[in-house]
């Protein structure tokens, strides 16, 4: 077996994996994660995760979309080819609003999607965990705590013991 990627510990219920997450966090690990079939309510707090920054991407996307809409309409109807319609002003933010509003939402949505993918390092073409057959149950009904070997606190015997005391019935090493 080549150098392992990490150690995985399997749990049967969300409460068990959440209790284990608190233990792992308390022990001071940094490169670790909890894998679940659905988002478990309260897990972010148990793991000590901060509020996700996706909203900033959304905000920047929205501002860009609104500005794009206003500038595009001003450029097309009031600058590049001046178009008088019904004797009204060449440009007004009122008639330009509906289109700019839609572009705000369009750009903000794309920014949200790509921001989320960027923060999650997705798409991920290769992941050691996805080669593990046992781990495939994570999208079915099992819950896992994964501690990477690259964590400075990692030691094969001690970490295994810690996960055993946290209540896992199945622990194994995952190769790189």
């Amino acid at each position: 077996m080549s150098k392992p990627h990490g150690i995985i510990a399997e749990f049967d219920t969300p409460a068990d994996v959440m209790a284990a997450a608190r233990v792992v966090r308390k022990a001071g690990f940094k490169r670790w994660d909890v894998h679940t079939p659905f988002p478990v309510h309260g897990m972010d707090e148990a793991m000590g995760l901060k509020n996700s920054p996706v909203g900033w991407f959304t905000f920047v996307g929205g501002v860009t979309g609104y500005t794009t809409g206003m500038l595009m309409i001003w450029f097309q109807n009031a600058f590049d080819y001046r178009l008088v319609v019904g004797g009204k002003p060449l440009f007004s933010p009122l008639f330009a609003f509906p289109v700019s509003y839609e572009l705000t939402i369009l750009f903000a949505s794309f920014a949200t999607l790509f921001g989320m993918l960027f923060l999650n390092r997705l798409p991920c073409l290769y992941h050691p965990l996805l080669k593990n057959r046992r781990f495939a149950q994570v999208t079915h009904d099992k819950f896992y705590v994964v501690i990477e070997t690259s964590d400075s606190k990692y030691s094969e015997t001690e970490t295994r013991k810690l996960l055993e005391t946290a209540g896992s019935k199945h622990i194994e090493l995952v190769e790189e």
Binding site: P39, V54, A108, L119, L122, L125, T139
Partner: peptide
């Protein structure tokens, strides 16, 4: 599926993005 592993660090961003969408 983009290499989704059900990681809670991913779920955290995912749920926020879903809420924003």
């Amino acid at each position: 599926a983009l290499g989704w592993t059900g990681s809670n660090r991913n779920w955290s961003n995912y749920e926020k993005a879903y809420l924003l969408l």
